[in-house]
């Protein structure tokens, strides 16, 4: 079975590194990290991920800007985007920000995989 490709866009280097280790440890995913939100669009273009994990509060372009930019591109607009955020807690705003689902930080590796599977399946 082909590994699913996950792009994680988050300025927290420690967090992205840990997520990559955990997801790749499962043997089901290939993860690309982008810590600079200004490069997010190009990273998505090159990597062609199956799902994008996107932080909201980042220096430079924030998560909302990045999501709009991705949506404006025909090749990228159908890739599921899941927000990662430290500002809301789970269940607080009906599980959706601007039409995209969100995962509240801190999230365990196990829960993260569950969320990813659910959103890729959709």
């Amino acid at each position: 079975m082909d590994k699913k490709k996950i792009l994680i866009i988050d300025d927290e280097e420690g967090f992205t590194k840990m997520v990559k280790l955990n997801l790749e440890e499962t043997g089901e995913y290939t993860v690309k990290i982008e810590n600079n939100s200004n490069n997010a669009f190009m990273a998505a273009k090159e990597f062609k991920p199956d799902l994008i994990l996107l932080d909201i509060m980042m220096p430079g372009m924030d998560g909302g800007d990045v999501a709009s930019e991705l949506k404006s591109d025909n090749a990228l607009k159908d890739i599921p985007v899941v927000f990662l955020t430290a500002i809301v807690k789970e269940g607080e705003i009906d599980g959706s920000i601007g039409g995209h689902p969100f995962i509240a930080k801190p999230v365990s590796a196990e829960d993260l995989v569950k969320h990813i599977k659910k959103y890729i399946a959709k």
Binding site: E12, G14, F15, M18, V19, L21, N22, E25, M57, A86, I87, A104, K105, P106, V107, S108, A109, E110, L112
Partner: peptide, 23 residues
């Protein structure tokens, strides 16, 4: 809000790190 952002991010790193070590 500031505290939430600044504390939860490191918590996220610790949790993911612990999850990795568990395996």
């Amino acid at each position: 809000s500031g505290v939430a952002h600044e504390v939860r991010n490191p918590l996220g790193i610790i949790l993911q790190g612990v999850n990795y070590l568990e395996k």
